[in-house]
């Protein structure tokens, strides 16, 4: 499988702020790749470097097989970008902006443009000045999705969309992927990430924390376990097991959380004490991300 985006050991400082500190990112061709991380983690900075808008201090970047700073014109004909904070020219109508951005990219698909306007229920004759935040995002999305490109780079593109429009957005992005396109999607909306992304990369403070499919990530996260046992168990009985934390033992009852990878070992050990009841809750997506987002210092006892 080929990579649409390949970033290795990317570094970027703004004055004294280390925005990127050795970031790696790999997006395969044909996938929807979620790009996640807490505020200020460096997502937008990475995207701007990918677009050649900013220059990295060091590191290697390859975009659609080219160099984002050298091959601007050819690369940008092959991708569309939707920024998080969509700013439009107040005097132009939405339709004018869509056509302008499409033309600057090398033309748009008329049929798709009409269809997207319809699906997003966007009135293209209104002046940009009068659009709400969600409608401004729709303008940028219609322009991006109706261009004939291979790669979509979306930086929090749906923060202003209502749930109905969010569904339209997901459908359109899936259609794009099914047509062979690649998507890099930065988002804070977990439902969106869960329903759309084939793989995700989580970054924090300019460094990778995790990347993989959601089920791989789930595997890394902790499962909550509660067990009622026939024979009492002591904390020392479990001391040699790795990945078990927050252990609370009251006589015949046990509660803990365990890294999902070590769940099997824990159950096996508890089996020796005779399991009478067992509850086990896999991590919710929220828990999963909270855990990854939290900086070690702030994480505190669980």
């Amino acid at each position: 499988m080929t990579s649409a985006i390949q970033v290795v050991d990317l570094r970027k400082t703004f004055g004294r702020t280390k925005a990127l500190d050795g970031l790696d990112l790999e997006v395969d061709t044909g996938e929807i790749h979620g790009f996640l991380g807490p505020n200020g983690a460096g997502k937008s900075t990475t995207i701007r470097i990918l677009l050649g808008l900013m220059r990295a201090d060091s590191g290697a970047v390859s975009l659609l097989g080219g160099d984002p700073r050298r091959d601007v014109e050819t690369l940008h004909r092959r991708l569309s970008y939707v920024p998080g904070d969509v700013a439009l020219w107040p005097n132009l109508s939405g339709g004018e902006v869509i056509d302008l951005l499409g033309n600057l990219r090398g033309g748009l698909d008329e049929r798709r443009r009409a269809e997207l306007l319809e699906r997003f229920a966007l009135d293209p004759t209104k002046k940009s000045r009068t659009y709400s935040k969600g409608n401004r995002q729709k303008v940028a999305l219609v322009a991006a999705l109706s261009s004939d490109v291979e790669l979509l780079i979306l930086d929090e593109p749906t923060s202003g969309l209502d749930p109905l429009m969010e569904a339209v957005f997901r459908e359109a992005v899936r259609d794009f992927r099914d047509g062979g396109g690649t998507v890099l999607l930065s988002s804070h909306i977990l439902g969106e990430v869960e329903s759309l992304c084939d793989r995700v990369s989580i970054i924090r403070e300019g460094r990778n924390v995790e990347s993989g499919t959601l089920s791989q990530l789930r595997h890394l996260a902790r499962t909550t376990v509660g067990a009622g046992l026939e024979r009492p168990v002591a904390e020392t009985d479990l001391a040699d097991l790795s990945g078990v934390v927050d252990l609370v033992i009251t006589d015949h009852e046990l509660h803990c959380t365990v890294e999902t990878a070590h769940l099997g070992a824990l159950l096996e050990r508890l089996g020796r004490h005779g399991i009478r009841t067992l509850t086990s809750a896999p991590p919710t997506l929220e828990e999963l991300f909270m855990e990854q987002y939290r900086t070690p210092e702030v994480a505190g006892p669980r």
Partner: peptide
Amino acid sequence: GRAEAVLATAVP
């Protein structure tokens, strides 16, 4: 933020 939109297209 409008320059970003233009410069992300094929305009050098």
